[in-house]
Amino acid sequence: MVGARKRPLYFSIIIYIILAVIAFITLIPFVWMLSAALKENKDVFNFPIKWIPDQIKWINYKDIWTRIPLKIFMQNSVKLSVIVTFLQVLTSSFAAYAFAKLEFAGRRVLFLAYIATIAVPWQAYMVPQFIMMSKLGLNNTHLAIIFLQAFSAFGVFMMRQFYMSIPSELCEAARIDGLSEYGIWSRIMLPNAKPAITTLVIFTFVNTWNDFLGPMIYLNSTELKTIQIGLRMFITQYTSDYALIMAASVVALIPVLLIFLSLQKQFVQGVAASGIKG
């Protein structure tokens, strides 16, 4: 590596101070949330802040499950996120192979169509899309959310970019050895694209889990709602139950943080592996 030369000490100290400040601002809301979730309602806004309350109210975490249908909201979000992520990763890693490694008529035009729509925000066509979905009888169904999320152009673009970095000679050699294109995709591209797939899984899962506007437009029945709109409903209904709101927020965060933390090692490695070895 380049940094073999020794850095002066004061330089390192400054870097660590900057990082500490960033870490503080990054984490403070989470810490505040955890702390407030264990407090009595009236103590949430006491100042100066008491980070560990005298009397820890674990019961808040029990109460939220009975105050709102939190379990249903969580189940809906898990179901939708898993299905969407699976479809997204499968179809876009498949399509991306053709765009990256195959020659065919209309490749440029098709790819341009994909690229062009990445730029167009969903919000610009959410109205006609809603009308279409309604005419198809998909309004107020989970299917609407799945169709909405699972075929994004972004996934295709991302996978294609990664495939481009895999040498074409590898595919060429495999082709000469008699592997079909599907075989090349499953045996050469997919194993080599693990970092990209991991990244796409994180992005898709997180986006679907956290999506707000889509479920807000499409899901009206309480039993279909996702955790995001369910949580928002709770917040606006019980505006002064600060501690419970925070406890519910913590619960809403956990799955997505777990996904991220369990994949992040591979994720960070994946990002790292793409360059340094060079």
Partner: peptide, 23 residues
């Protein structure tokens, strides 16, 4: 540091917006 700086992005908007709104 890499891991935690990604926390806000993955965190649910509704949850963290509410915290910041309180703060």
């Amino acid at each position: 540091f890499r891991t935690i700086s990604f926390f806000p992005y993955v965190a649910s908007l509704v949850a963290v917006a509410t915290v910041w709104r309180f703060i």
